[in-house]
């Protein structure tokens, strides 16, 4: 709980320093890039470096392509919540080094 607060404060400070304009405030830090790791169902980690304003659909597609899975069979979770393709790291509050869980489809029938 501490880290997000700190980072938020930092962000605000940066914004205040960088520009006095309230309109530009949101747009300025958008160009930042964050490293996000995607943890697969087998604990394998894939690192992605994306802009905070990039839609995560791009990341999802890249992950599915890299791991060779069908896009419809992978569920992406952030803190246990499903994310949509239109979310961005910014909208989810993802920080540097945060992780996205990639779960493969679960089907009943004694698979577990």
């Amino acid at each position: 709980m501490d880290s997000p607060n700190n980072s938020n404060n930092n962000n605000n400070n940066n914004n205040d320093k960088s520009s006095a304009n309230a309109d530009v405030k949101d747009a300025k830090p958008d160009t930042e890039q964050v490293n996000i790791k995607v943890i697969g169902p087998d604990s394998s980690e894939v690192m992605f470096r994306i802009k905070t304003t990039t839609k995560l659909s791009k990341l999802m597609q890249a992950y599915c392509t890299r791991t060779g899975q069908a896009a419809g069979s992978v569920r992406f979770l952030v803190d246990g919540q499903r994310i949509s393709a239109d979310d961005t790291p910014q909208s989810l509050g993802l920080e540097e080094g945060d992780s996205i869980d990639a779960m493969s489809e679960q089907v009943g029938g004694g698979r577990h």
Partner: peptide, 24 residues
């Protein structure tokens, strides 16, 4: 309600992986 991945993740990878799931 947790999702269906909660139990399997907790079972296979431990509390560390799911400790943030109830953050919000």
């Amino acid at each position: 309600a947790f999702n269906t991945f909660f139990y399997s993740t907790l079972r296979d990878q431990g509390y560390v992986r799911v400790k943030r799931w109830t953050r919000r």
